[in-house]
Nucleic acid binder design. Structure first.
Length: 605
DNA sequence: GGCGTAATAT
DNA sequence: GATATTACGC
């Protein structure tokens, strides 16, 4: 690594870390001032903001503007860990977390969520003096990672396909013993493993193209992955669309039958049976939620979020240099430490719930069979089809987020009485004012690589007052952005396509009210109940987690996951459907919007 | 040829 | 059972 690489050839590199560009984020003006002072003492070039969202916007405006981010953990507008997550996801900047709470578990969570350091207030000058090393370290790691990727070649081989290869090898051996006429098999095209990276590229390509223009060939071109064929992409796209369809459907289901302010109505619901199988949906199976999705809604969505929605087609920030990428055959996980980087798109799990697994990665494309250990080791990570699997994020959602705040504000009881909760509660009004009256503009670069339909950004989409017809305002303000975004995305994607009456129009119909659904359900999750609601679980999973996760609400973390997107958030939401665990937020940060409980009247199945 | 869908193979 | 691949009609 050359010095130029550290700072992109900046002349001041010689004096590094002097002049290192630090973005300091803390809602507490006093703390911020102190921090600013310390940073300046170290001759860093400091930019401060008391709002995480502002920080995020600054970072998104120019990802090269800062070398390092140092952020408080608890902030009213956006949890510091959500910021951490997004930064890690979108710009790969080192982030140092700051907190007055030096509890071991919190520190652990901070680090496992991608923070390169966790400083306990009051921060000492000596600590600040050394933070520059994280910048260097990040650069080095980034570079070595790139080198590894470049050295990996081919569509086959590596740990990802280890099972597959082994199986084939075994088969070959058997065939040698008996059947010899199996050349065709040997030549057979290897199955593509949709690894996380691959899937990210895929979604990034879709984001870049705009989902309505995202056809296999174009996606393939953008992905620029050796060995990948248009057919592969088409297949994946097919699955992806089914996934979009499903999530929008599920969201609407909830809206249709629970989309009102009566939170108790949710509580009466029995658990969803899980899968909304679109493949069995008939054209005539119109969903009774149409009244919640007036024709004008989409228009309002559009007008209210013009900028935001453009992000669907706007070039992703991180996208591509278009360097040639090869399908990754190599092991995805090499060390726990690297997990943080390699799987920044993957929900990190609390250590106490992690089962560090050393088993080799098999396929990286299966959300369906995700388990904690698998997630952390990069096993099975990208399947949209089975997003309802309750085990998917089981036991991983322990963080508070703005929704928690709002839920609290809405009179919902959280089980936690920790200081974090108190802090959150004490700051809600400011948050509401901000979002209710003057929503920040929606960053056009909302959707960078890695499918970052990140919720916090979406929060600011300005949807809030226009969309919701049923949910209480506070939650709307939050849920609207994200889900509206998703909905819009899905709608755009599917309503513009040709094809049979069944095949495409379903999407928009199902997706219209996703936002409302989620928003409402957030309330529902908490309304009138201070404890977990006990639903039966179709899959018998997760009930034991309820208490645990409730207890952990006070932790004040927002999950860090790499995807922070449709792909990430929605699965979490859907999971909650089945889990009926009343978490306010989950591994995917904002997956707590889904109503737990069966949606009655789902006659489409 | 490319797309989307459905059938088929794994 | 779920996924990727393949077939097929548009």
């Amino acid at each position: 690594m050359t010095v130029e690489e550290i700072r992109g050839g900046d002349n001041e590199i010689d004096r590094f870390p002097i002049g290192m560009r630090v973005l300091a984020v803390d809602d507490n003006p006093t703390c911020l001032k102190l921090l600013d002072g310390l940073l300046r003492k170290c001759q860093y070039q400091v930019t401060t903001t008391n709002q995480a969202i502002k920080a995020l916007n600054m970072l998104r405006e120019n990802r090269n503007r800062f070398d390092l981010v140092i952020s408080d953990v608890y902030m009213p507008d956006m949890d510091g860990f959500k910021l951490l997550e997004l930064v890690g996801l979108e710009m790969d900047l080192p982030v140092i977390m700051l907190s007055g709470n030096g509890d071991r578990n919190l520190v652990m969570k901070g680090i496992t969520h991608g923070a390169c350091d966790y400083l306990v207030k009051p921060v000492r000058l000596e600590e600040i003096r050394n933070i520059w090393q994280h910048v260097i370290r990040r650069k080095v790691e980034s570079k070595s990672k790139n080198n590894r990727e470049k050295s990996d070649q081919g569509i086959e081989g590596g740990d990802q396909n280890e099972k597959l290869n082994r199986k084939r090898k075994d088969e070959d051996e058997e065939e040698e013993n008996g059947n010899e006429s199996d050349d065709p098999t040997a030549k057979k095209k290897p199955r593509v493993v949709w690894s996380i990276d691959l899937h990210r590229k895929f979604v990034a390509a879709i984001n870049q193209l705009g989902i309505e223009k995202a056809v296999p060939k174009r996606i393939l071109d953008l992905m620029n992955v050796d060995g990948l064929t248009r057919e592969n992409v088409a297949s994946h796209l097919q699955k992806y669309r089914l996934y979009l369809k499903r999530i929008s459907h599920q969201a609407n289901m909830v809206v249709a039958f629970g989309g009102n302010n009566d939170a108790s109505s949710y509580m009466r619901m029995s658990p969803l049976d899980g899968l909304a199988d679109f493949r069995t949906l008939s054209c005539s199976g119109r969903l009774p939620n149409a009244t919640y999705a007036p024709a004008g809604m989409l228009g309002r969505l559009n007008s209210a979020t013009g900028v935001a929605l453009h992000s669907l087609t706007a070039p992703p920030l991180v996208q591509p240099n278009h360097t040639q990428t090869k399908l990754q055959p190599g092991p995805v996980v090499s060390s726990n430490h690297q997990n943080m980087n390699l799987f920044q798109g993957i929900p990190p799990f609390e250590l106490d719930q992690l089962q560090y697994s050393n088993k080799p990665n098999t396929h990286l494309t299966d959300y369906n069979s995700i388990e904690e250990s698998q997630i952390f080791t990069g096993t099975n990570l990208a399947d949209f089809n089975s997003i309802n699997e309750p085990r998917m994020f089981r036991g991983s959602s322990t963080f508070t987020d703005p929704i928690s705040v709002l839920a609290s504000q809405a009179g919902v009881k959280l089980t936690s009485t920790g200081t974090e909760s108190l802090n959150l509660l004490s700051t809600t009004s400011g948050f509401l004012d901000q979002n209710g009256n003057q929503p920040p503009s929606f960053p056009s670069n909302l959707l960078p690589v890695g499918e970052s339909y990140s919720y916090p950004a979406a929060v600011n989409g300005g949807f809030s007052s226009n969309i919701t017809t049923t949910a209480a305002v506070p939650v709307e303000a939050h849920g609207g952005g994200l889900v509206g975004h998703i909905v819009q995305n899905v709608n755009q994607s599917l309503s513009n396509q040709k094809g049979g009456p069944c095949s495409k129009q379903d999407y928009s119909q199902y997706s219209q009210n996703a936002f409302t659904t989620l928003a409402s359900s957030a309330l529902a999750d908490y309304g009138g109940s201070s404890g977990p609601v006990s639903h039966s679980r179709p899959n018998g999973v997760g009930s034991t987690l309820v208490q645990t996760e409730h207890t952990k609400l006070q932790s004040g973390f927002v999950s860090s996951n790499g995807y922070g997107s449709l792909d990430d958030i929605i699965p979490g939401m859907l999971k909650r459907e089945q889990n009926t665990t009343m978490q306010m937020n989950g591994e995917f940060g904002y997956d707590a919007y889904m109503v737990p409980g069966r949606v009655y009247g789902d006659e489409s199945k």
